[in-house]
Write a protein that binds this DNA or RNA. Structure first.
Length: 111
DNA sequence: CGAGTGACCGCAA
DNA sequence: ATTGCGGCCACTC
């Protein structure tokens, strides 16, 4: 019997996504890795679709910085949400992930 | 309960 | 730089 202490992968993903601060983004693979399975990047995407939609999934993008596809409202809506956060999105729906990629270890106070 | 699936990722032309 | 293909694993019906 599985130990009840062992929380589902989904539980960790949702918690992590919920802690992503504004103007910061994370990749699906990174989230998966921090949750214990670097290969479960696709699962994170699945959770985004079937999981809690109230979470800031708009702060989750591809490893290359490109925006995801199945976002509610389309990639176009995703772009606008990010810009609303203050994140610049170029014409190819790509962001400077190298600067915006966030790590949970970083101190929130950074200004 | 079983099989298919996917808001991905990495690597090869 | 872009395009395509395979693999990977938890989640859904």
């Amino acid at each position: 019997m599985m130990t009840a202490k062992e929380v589902n992968f989904r539980q960790r993903v949702e918690a992590l996504v919920a802690h992503i601060p504004p103007k910061r983004v994370m990749s699906y693979g990174q989230i998966a890795a921090l949750c214990g399975n670097a290969r479960a990047a696709r699962i994170v995407g699945g959770i985004a679709h079937y999981g809690d939609l109230s979470l800031p999934w708009h702060r989750v993008v591809h490893r290359d910085g490109k925006l995801a596809r199945g976002y509610p409202g389309g990639i176009n809506g995703h772009k606008q949400v990010l810009e609303s956060e203050g994140v610049h999105v170029d014409g190819v729906y790509r962001i400077d992930i190298r600067a915006l990629l966030w790590f949970p270890d970083e101190r929130e106070n950074r200004e």
